[in-house]
Computed example of a mutant assay.
Amino acid sequence: MWRPIHAVVTSRVILLHPLAPPKPPPGAACNGCGVCCAAEPCPLGIALTRRRRGACAALRWDDAQARYRCGALADAEATLRVPRWAAPAARALAARWIAAGAGCDSDLVPQPSR
Rank of each mutant, 00 (worst) to 15 (best):
P4C: 00
R60D: 00
W97H: 12
I14H: 09
P43A: 03
P24G: 12
M1P: 12
M1L: 10
L73I: 14
A29M: 11
C36H: 03
L73A: 07
L15M: 08
C37V: 04
R84H: 02
A7N: 11
A55E: 06
I46T: 05
S106N: 13
A94T: 15
L15Y: 05
I5A: 13
R53E: 14
I98V: 15
A99D: 13
P25R: 06
C104H: 04
R67D: 07
A89D: 08
G32A: 01
L93Y: 06
S113I: 08
P43M: 03
R53Y: 10
A58E: 04
I46C: 03
T10K: 07
D107V: 15
G101T: 11
P43I: 01
P110Y: 08
C70H: 00
A55M: 02
P41S: 06
R60G: 00
G27E: 13
P25E: 15
A95R: 04
K23V: 05
S113G: 04
R53A: 09
C104Q: 11
V109E: 14
L16W: 00
P83R: 00
A28Q: 12
L108K: 01
A102S: 13
W61H: 10
C70N: 01
A99K: 10
V82I: 11
V9A: 06
S113P: 08
C70R: 01
V109K: 10
R53N: 07
G54D: 14
A90W: 07
L93A: 14
S113Y: 03
P25D: 14
S113Q: 09
C36V: 05
A78Y: 03
A57H: 06
P21W: 02
G34T: 07
L15E: 13
C104S: 09
W85D: 15
Q111W: 13
I98D: 01
L59Q: 02
I14S: 08
P24L: 07
C36I: 05
I14C: 09
C36E: 07
T79V: 15
A90V: 13
H17G: 06
I46R: 13
I98C: 14
R96F: 08
K23F: 02
L80N: 09
R114L: 09
H6I: 12
L108Y: 04
